[in-house]
Amino acid sequence: MKLTLPRILAFLLFSVSICSQAAELDLARYKGKLVYVDFWASWCGPCRASFPFMNDLVKEYGNELAVVSVNLDEERQDADDFLKEIPADFSVIYDPEGGLAKQYGVRGMPNSFLFDRSGKLVSRHDGFTVKDPQHIRELIDNTLGKSQ
């Protein structure tokens, strides 16, 4: 079925940038919606705890909120194994080199950012504990303009 032979130019130190792996996150794609961006890694315990909550967010606010997660595992396999165990109902962007994390100034994990409809940062949240879901829901409701 395959005769094309990729030639291996082994051990070359020069790199060619045509296949750069830099991850991109374009918030403009979600214009009109709130965006919840969450940075995580497979080996981070609190991230594991935050996944069911983010799946709930998708269910509860599906039309008004986009949940986007950025995986920071260096090895894609680790992220895949994690997602096999705890499936995500939201999109996952892979940022193995940490370019996006640097851009966002990620301080720890998980680290989440809430943007309003116009793409303005409303709040950032470090870590994930059992009392966080309530706090984050309130923030989302406030940003949506739903009065409490």
């Binding site: 890694a41 080996w43 595992d73 680790d78 994990m109």
Partner: peptide
């Protein structure tokens, strides 16, 4: 290291 580079340290 950066927070996302702690995979080995977190073991």
């Amino acid at each position: 290291v950066d927070p996302w580079q702690r995979q080995n340290l977190a073991k």
